[in-house]
Design a protein around this nucleic acid. Sequence first.
RNA 1: GGCGCCAUGGCCAAGUGGUAAGGCAAAGGUCUGCAACACCUCUAUCACCAGUUCAAAUCUGGUUGGCGCCU
Length: 315
Amino acid sequence: MNKLIVLTGPTAVGKTDLSIKLAKAVNGEIISADSIQVYKDMNIGSAKITEDEMQGVRHHLIDVLSPEEDFNVVTFKNMADKAIKEIYERGHIPIITGGTGFYIQAVLNDIDFKENEDDGYRAYLENLVKEKGELYLHDMLKEVDEKSAEAIHFNNVKKVIRALEYHHQTGEKISEHNETERAKKSPYNFAYFVLDCEREKLYKRIEKRVDIMIEQGLVDEVKGLLNKYDLSPDSVSVQGLGYKEVFAYLRGEISLDEAIYIIKRDTRHFAKRQLTWFRREKEVIRIDKDIYDTDEKCLDYILGILKEKGIIQSD
RNA sequence: GGCGCCAUGGCCAAGUGGUAAGGCAAAGGUCUGCAACACCUCUAUCACCAGUUCAAAUCUGGUUGGCGCCU
């Protein structure tokens, strides 16, 4: 069966260094599951790995899009699947690293996202909410897909719209689609590692990292983006943590101190959400960095499990 | 030493007699085409003591702490 390693964890736990060591140890190539690191010229704010740090390990899905381009799970999945295929052809093992749990899930369980041509229905719905309100939209959903309506809170307009859109385009209920997709088993022989450490420590690391980003010139990086690209305010790249706040600062809406405060706070929130996600993901192997307190110890532990699972040869 | 003001959850902050708004932080959760997105849930008996009252965070007295002014 096809082998796959996932190495993830909340932002700033220290995935990058370990991923290189792991890749070297198992002859692997890295696929980044990160919605911001895909973009060129977004380096500091996304804490992107540098060429040097890669140490010759092959990386995929980093620096492949212009910040003007759109990126989402489906494009991620297509690109990742392609990369995985190539990696197998080279006789290597794919290692998925990065903090976007949703993306990881998509390739790990080979989720089918159905075709989706844009016929303007989405835009129509987005307009409709503005006129009639969230409840109206939610009632629409109730009529075509009761289950989804129950599961999705009426305030969660984005998800309500997607569910309606899905029904509009396929004639099926997204709740049913989700159910069948969820029941799928992963086509991979995989090991899913989640790095974690004491919350306090993680938050301190996050705050320190944000300070370093500012020192390294995040503001200039963002200015550079504005000069070089024609960015729409709702493109994925502009939503990146650390970017949207600096944009606001450059527009004069907030002070730099406020921007820094918000980046730190929202990054903490983000880390928390990531942990919630990984917690409920089944079959994850949690690695407590307070116990495995060096990369070497982590690596030993990981290699042990990989052997057990037959993902690498035991010697 | 005297005079005046203030004291509500980790922080900010409403409430001035009828049984503690709200925001932020923290915590927990949802998520199957925007996921570094979007969304949900949730935390106090009002510095302390005594009194008035059917009823006090709200009134009175005292204690403690803080702030300002005066000598």
